[in-house]
């Protein structure tokens, strides 16, 4: 039995749904699960975390409540030491990418990011490498073990526990070389690609930035996030934050709808772990047609508005 620390992420003061799958991954073999909550309302999420098997919520206060990458990393390390936690899990989200490697660096501990599975007894992580073409089993050796978990890798499974909340005040760390000047919010209401359940993405076949409005409308009707291929980004039709692929977001939604995307290896590197891939393409010879679950050969400019209409009728 081990004490497992789980770094819990929030968005707009709400606990992120992706945490549930991560907590589920840590269940099993009677490990003791500690949720580590930094500068957030720990009491408010106690019930939700208990429902997935968390037995202690560590309510960490750091740096007067403000966000600071080094300050938070240091506070998590202090809480781990105080609770005797040597294994830490967190999401491979933008925040996790900023924090988990800092924590690993402070502890000089091995870290595997973007894990799709973990064996906490053997300290082995499973993750994809080489653009999703290979699955690696990686042994972590050392006193501490840190895992970044891919959002959506495991479906949440409830397991009742009764978590207690423990307050923890982190000691001010020694001066950091980083000053957080400000945080500029992204576009309101944007669903983050990495954690979206449905993604509708456009490629070369979209022909212009204006035409992405068709996808936006359809996305709104089905609660999806909008993505794009590298071509659409390089053409300047949408910002690079939309890009799915090798050098964009790696996503694994329940459904990925690719519109006018030929399906290059680099694009697949970012979305091949989607549960279901649906292609809409006028070219029956496009690579994606042979590597999807469903395809429609036809004109996306006719089909997508029909989908939006059908969703309206269904909703």
């Amino acid at each position: 039995m081990k004490k497992i620390g789980l770094f819990i992420e929030f968005k707009d003061d709400e606990i992120k749904p992706a945490n549930d799958g991560m907590v589920t991954m840590a269940q099993g073999d009677g490990h003791e699960l500690f949720a580590l909550v930094v500068n957030a309302d720990a009491a408010a999420c106690r019930e939700r975390l208990s429902a997935y098997g968390v037995s202690a919520v560590v309510d960490i206060t750091a740096g007067g409540g403000a966000w600071h990458p080094d300050g938070w990393a240091d506070a998590v390390v202090q809480a781990m030491n105080a609770c005797g936690i040597e294994t830490l899990m967190g999401l491979t989200s933008p925040q996790g990418r900023d924090l988990l490697p800092r924590i690993a660096a402070v502890l000089d501990a091995p870290l595997v990011m973007d894990c799709v599975g973990v064996d906490l007894d053997r300290n082995v992580a499973r993750t994809t490498q080489y653009s999703g073409k290979a699955m690696a089993e990686i042994q972590l050796t050392g006193r501490h073990h840190i895992y970044g978990i891919r959002a959506g890798a495991v479906s949440p499974a409830p397991r009742a526990a009764a978590a207690e909340v423990h307050a923890f005040s982190a000691v001010e760390p020694t001066a950091s070389g980083i000053e957080v000047l400000s945080t500029r919010p992204g576009e309101a209401g944007t669903v983050d690609l990495a954690e979206a359940d449905i993604i509708i993405a456009g490629g070369r076949g979209m022909k212009s930035g204006e035409n992405f409005k068709l996808l936006q409308d359809c996305a709104r009707a089905m609660g999806a996030a909008v993505g794009a291929s590298r071509v659409a980004v390089d053409e300047g039709w949408v910002p690079y934050t939309f890009q799915v692929g090798q050098t964009g977001s790696k996503v694994n939604p329940k459904v990925y709808i690719a519109c006018g995307i030929s399906g290059s290896v680099q694009h697949f590197a970012g979305m091949k772990s989607s549960e279901m891939i649906i292609a809409v393409n006028k070219d029956p010879g496009a690579a994606i047609i042979g590597k999807c679950d469903y395809y429609i050969v036809g004109d996306l400019f006719e089909i997508i508005p029909e989908v939006t209409r059908a969703l309206g009728a269904a909703g």
């Binding site: 000089d108 073409k133 990686i138 590597k291 679950d293 050969v297």
Partner: peptide, 21 residues
Amino acid sequence: GGKTEILSLAPVAENREPREI
């Protein structure tokens, strides 16, 4: 501080069966 070591590496199978709508 420790290390990471690859125990095994296996190709990821592409096993979708495309169906037309």
